[in-house]
């Protein structure tokens, strides 16, 4: 299979005070298995919207186009079915779940996904073993497993927690929505290592970012530039370097 994810002519809008506002205006994008792609673009170009639409957030109305994921019609699936199929979204702003123990949440999620994939569920011992190894790799303390999901977590802890969930859920495609925002250099390195550890012929990532630094760690295969709801240019890693120096000015005229 040469494509894991194929987005064709995707249009999506959101309801703004009763008037549909179009945000995605014909996105075309292909991510083959085992590759890391990055999407860059100015604020408000639709990067986060694309990640939400792919994950199945209901507020967005898909008005045209199609998305196939491992040959399946992604847009016809419920959010939890997409997760079970292997799509993971690392949230830009991870959500707090008061009173919900982090380890319990993680185990419930892992077993829900394993059940849906026809894999045996992890028992408490098996789960703890796996999760301890994963937290260690991410330089997370066991204490974070005992706390409530994202409640009182620092920005860096929240992002690490996202990467921990990603590691445990073993997705085929991870969408990282500005996972690098608000991280200091050390935290960025740890998070990047966490993603790098997952790299395999069976794992792809779609990295949404503003910054060159995360991409330096990850070594992406392709860079896509998004402007006003469309991919206006795709290229190799050198494209990220060009943006870092020149900004988006030249792409803005291209899109017009």
């Amino acid at each position: 299979m040469s494509e894991l994810l194929k987005i064709s002519g995707l249009h999506a809008s959101i309801d703004a005070d009763g008037i549909p506002k179009e945000i995605l205006r014909g996105v075309d994008l292909v991510v083959p298995p085992g590759e890391v792609h990055a999407i860059m673009g100015p604020n408000g170009c639709g990067k986060s919207t694309l990640s939400y639409v792919l994950a199945g957030r209901e507020e967005y109305d898909v008005t045209a186009g199609s998305v196939s994921f491992m040959g399946q019609d992604l847009l016809a699936m419920e959010p939890e079915e997409r997760a079970a199929a292997g799509l993971f979204l690392a949230f830009q702003a991870p959500v707090e779940l008061p009173g919900v123990n982090n380890a319990n949440f993680l185990r419930t999620a892992v077993n829900a996904v394993r059940r849906a994939r026809g894999e045996p569920e992890l028992d408490a011992v098996g789960f703890l073993k796996t999760v301890r190894a994963a937290t260690k790799n991410l330089s997370m303390s066991d204490d974070m497993l005992k706390r409530n999901v994202n409640v009182g977590f620092s920005g860096g802890e929240k992002k690490r927690n996202e990467v921990l969930q990603m590691t445990m859920l073993q997705p085929k495609l991870a969408i990282l929505d500005e996972t690098d925002s608000g991280l200091d250099v050390d935290a960025l390195r740890i998070v990047a290592e966490g993603v790098k550890n997952l790299r395999s012929p069976d794992f792809s990532a779609l990295v949404i970012t503003h910054h060159q630094r995360l991409l330096e760690y990850l070594g992406p295969d392709r860079i896509h530039v998004m402007v006003r709801g469309r991919i206006v240019r795709s290229g190799g890693p050198e494209l990220a370097k060009q943006i870092d120096v020149e900004g988006y000015a030249s792409f803005l005229t291209e899109a017009a």
């Binding site: 199945g56 779940l97 949440f105 999620a109």
Partner: peptide
């Protein structure tokens, strides 16, 4: 919140499981 529901479902939980988890946390 919608955010909480979507977050749980994106992690593979059904709507019922998500509500159960959030309610049990609340209680």
């Amino acid at each position: 919140s919608e955010d909480q529901m979507f977050y749980c479902r994106q992690r593979g939980l059904s709507q019922e499981d998500a509500v159960g988890l959030i309610v049990n946390g609340f209680c």
